[in-house]
Simulated scan of single mutants.
Amino acid sequence: MKARVYLVMALVVSLAGCSGGSQSRPDGGEPDGGWEETAGEGDATGQDASEQDEGPVVLRLDDVLPSRGPVQGGTWVNIVGAGFVEGIAESPFGVRDVTLVTFGDNPALDLEVVRDDMISVRTPPGPAGPVTVAVENPNGRVELTDAFTYFEQVIVDSVQPLDLSSRGGTPIRATGSGFTQDTVLMVGGRRAGSCAVTGSTRVDCLAPPGAPGLADVEVVNRNGRRLLFRAVRYHAVPSLLGAQPAAGPSSGGTVVALAG
Results as ranks from 00 to 15, higher is better:
67 S>E: 07
6 Y>G: 02
19 S>M: 14
79 I>S: 12
228 L>S: 07
47 Q>G: 01
157 D>Q: 08
210 G>T: 03
138 P>G: 04
127 P>S: 15
209 P>Q: 04
17 G>C: 08
177 S>R: 14
178 G>T: 12
216 D>K: 06
231 A>P: 04
40 G>H: 00
139 N>T: 11
137 N>S: 08
209 P>N: 01
182 D>E: 06
186 M>I: 00
197 V>Y: 15
65 L>V: 14
120 S>A: 12
170 T>W: 14
203 V>M: 06
20 G>P: 01
52 Q>A: 14
172 I>G: 02
194 S>V: 10
123 T>W: 12
206 L>E: 13
16 A>W: 05
58 V>Y: 03
4 R>S: 14
108 A>I: 02
237 V>T: 09
117 D>R: 06
227 L>S: 00
204 D>L: 11
37 E>M: 06
194 S>A: 07
230 R>P: 01
93 F>A: 10
49 A>S: 09
218 E>L: 11
228 L>E: 10
172 I>H: 00
70 P>H: 14
110 D>V: 07
17 G>R: 01
62 D>K: 09
48 D>C: 06
203 V>W: 02
174 A>M: 00
95 V>N: 10
233 R>I: 05
81 G>Q: 11
97 D>Q: 12
20 G>N: 13
42 G>W: 03
55 G>P: 07
122 R>Q: 00
74 G>R: 05
63 D>F: 02
145 T>H: 12
22 S>C: 00
159 V>H: 05
161 P>G: 02
36 E>L: 05
78 N>V: 01
224 G>Y: 00
249 P>H: 02
249 P>D: 02
195 C>P: 10
5 V>H: 14
98 V>D: 09
45 T>H: 10
214 L>G: 02
148 F>I: 11
68 R>H: 12
120 S>T: 09
235 H>K: 01
191 R>G: 08
209 P>G: 03
137 N>T: 01
85 V>Y: 14
76 W>L: 11
4 R>L: 13
223 N>S: 12
15 L>R: 12
222 R>D: 08
186 M>G: 00
127 P>A: 15
106 N>I: 04
26 P>W: 06
197 V>H: 13
15 L>M: 14
163 D>V: 10
46 G>P: 03
36 E>M: 07
43 D>L: 07
165 S>Q: 12
148 F>P: 02
5 V>A: 15
196 A>I: 13
150 Y>G: 00
63 D>K: 08
1 M>C: 02
91 S>V: 04
141 R>K: 15
213 G>W: 08
210 G>M: 06
91 S>I: 03
39 A>E: 06
151 F>N: 12
91 S>F: 01
124 P>W: 13
13 V>T: 00
102 T>M: 15
164 L>A: 02
